[in-house]
């Protein structure tokens, strides 16, 4: 039996985008680390975004993110909290060659 919280997130679309955070220092510079941000889709997404359907969810992401997950063979976990926040983990950005 599916609880009320999970019912809320079915049939929804989410957008994965990249944000940059500054990483650890003491190597003469703080490396930029690209992290994944998950947000609920509101409005149109850019036309170049790829749609990935997962059972009853849709994820929209651009080619860079898709390629990083696909090429890096990542298992990205997206957690949804009851407070309505979304967290993604297990993502490693791969620069395009």
């Amino acid at each position: 039996m599916v609880g009320p919280f999970l019912q809320e997130i079915y049939d929804k679309s989410f957008v994965l985008s990249l944000i940059s955070v500054a990483g650890p220092c003491k190597d003469e510079s703080c490396q930029v680390i690209k992290k994944l941000k998950v947000s609920e889709r509101s409005g149109d997404v850019p036309s170049h975004f790829t749609e990935v359907k997962l059972k009853s969810l849709s994820l929209f992401m651009d080619k860079v993110i898709y390629s990083s997950i696909d090429r890096g063979r990542e298992t990205v976990t997206i957690r949804f909290t009851k407070g309505g926040r979304f967290f993604a983990s297990g993502f490693a950005y791969l620069p395009q060659i």
Binding site: S20, A22, C25, K26, E28, S29, C30, Q31, V32
Partner: peptide, 10 residues
């Protein structure tokens, strides 16, 4: 590419 520094020293 933007690099951040944790201190003026760095």
């Amino acid at each position: 590419q933007r690099y951040y520094f944790c201190s003026k020293t760095c």
